[in-house]
């Protein structure tokens, strides 16, 4: 799996808000992520981190996401 080299979703801390900038993963994974709401320009909020995985909220929906997938989602400040 590819990972995003800049700041990624895996690095954000609980309570922080970020905007998704780029997805760097297999095309089918990217399509799924986008369809779930993790598309470019969407705002994402970190709820909690645990066991290396994170729980975040996008489009008012909460998702548990593994750290490797989270590291393929490039983000920037809102």
């Amino acid at each position: 799996m590819k990972t995003f080299e800049g700041q990624s979703l895996a690095h954000i801390l609980p309570g922080q808000l970020f905007r998704i900038r780029q997805l760097a993963n297999h095309p089918e994974v990217c399509t799924r992520l986008r369809e779930l709401g993790f598309c470019e320009n969407a705002v994402v909020r970190c709820i909690t981190k645990g066991y290396g995985n994170i729980i975040c909220e996008v489009f008012n929906t909460r998702f548990g996401i593994d750290s490797l997938t989270a590291s393929s989602i490039g983000i920037s400040n809102v």
């Binding site: 993963n25 779930l36 995985n53 929906t61 909460r62 998702f63 548990g64 593994d66």
Partner: peptide
């Protein structure tokens, strides 16, 4: 094979 990615909706 490697495990598939994990992403799951967590309901309220």
């Amino acid at each position: 094979g490697t495990p598939s990615f994990f992403i799951m909706e967590l309901p309220q």
